[in-house]
């Protein structure tokens, strides 16, 4: 089960500060959407509107075509997992999980048990006594096992070590295959998570800079790799995003598409043309916007 999300001309103001500026965006049902942006770009503000934690100042936020705010059927479809402050949470892990199963109509208890094992979560420990990484793992277990048609993970991996993050990513992909839903993953760890995304949304200073399927991202740039000197000559005058050099070999990220003629020319010179990384594109686009 999956649901679509739509924002129509959404503006969110905090007193004089505009966190979101006339954002219009449609997130297709059943896909994994990556939401990337720098600190303070408006990611969490946007997600909190989808989860009906607050109302937009103007515009509308729809889930499967209906406004989500105070709409019981639509709110029930959204699970919002974020870096929650658990300092005061003295309940045990199993209590929070059983609460989620009490309230979430599609909650899968068996799946939750499997995940608890995979993350080695101590179910009898009070939540505020868990390490940061374990608290994040608890959030992830609740978010995944709730099987809400719209599941939002807002930097849900904070404090998790690399192996745990790997389990998290694998579980998203596996569960998406078995029980497709709409995932929205907001992240800083672009290079680590980009392979998960079907679609990418980049936001900066409250506006959407880019919203595209992941495959077409590469149309925005290429990497040119080869002998340093030849790469320099070939890329002279082009907009460079990033460069790396190892011995005599150099790799340069170029912004913009290369024409077929240029590609052939590169091949003739023995240069390798590859896709640009989302990370480099993200850094470039947000720098340019600033």
């Amino acid at each position: 089960m999956a649901a679509s999300v739509q924002l129509n001309h959404v503006t969110l103001k905090f007193k004089k500060f505009e966190a979101l500026k006339d954002v219009s965006l449609t997130l297709e049902a059943g896909k994994i959407h990556g939401l990337i942006g720098r600190n303070g770009a408006g990611k969490t503000s946007l997600l909190s509107l989808i989860a009906a934690f607050r109302e937009p100042t103007s515009g509308e936020v729809l889930v499967d075509g209906a406004p989500v705010f105070e709409n019981p059927e639509k709110m029930e479809q959204v699970a919002f997992v974020y870096d929650k402050d658990y300092k005061e949470e003295t309940e045990k892990v199993k209590k929070l999980i059983s609460l989620a199963s009490h309230y979430r109509p599609h909650f899968d208890t068996e799946y939750a048990k499997q995940l608890i094992k995979r993350f080695k979560l101590p179910v009898n420990k009070p939540v505020n006594k868990l390490s940061k990484g374990m608290q994040s793992a608890l959030n992830v277990v609740i978010g995944l096992a709730s099987r809400a048609p719209v599941t939002i993970f807002d930097e849900a991996y904070l404090g998790m070590d690399a192996p745990s993050r790997e389990i998290f990513y694998k579980e998203i992909l596996q569960d998406q295959e078995d029980h497709p839903r709409t995932f929205i993953l907001s992240t800083h760890l672009v290079s680590e998570m980009d392979y998960l995304f079907d679609n990418v949304v980049i936001i900066d200073q409250g506006t959407v800079l880019l919203h595209e399927p992941y495959e077409t991202i590469e149309a925005h740039g290429v990497s040119v790799t080869g002998a340093a000197q030849e790469v320099d000559i070939f890329t002279a005058g082009m907009k460079q995003l990033n460069e790396q050099q190892l011995g005599g070999t150099k790799s340069v990220m170029i912004y913009g598409n290369l024409g077929d003629a240029k590609r052939q020319e590169a091949r003739a010179q023995g240069l390798e043309i590859g896709p640009v990384s989302l990370q480099d594109l993200f850094i470039h686009l947000t720098e340019e916007a600033n």
């Binding site: 019981p72 479809q77 699970a79 979430r104």
Partner: peptide, 8 residues
């Protein structure tokens, strides 16, 4: 609200 219930 985080568990998807309305304020009402």
């Amino acid at each position: 609200i985080q568990q998807g219930l309305s304020r009402r």
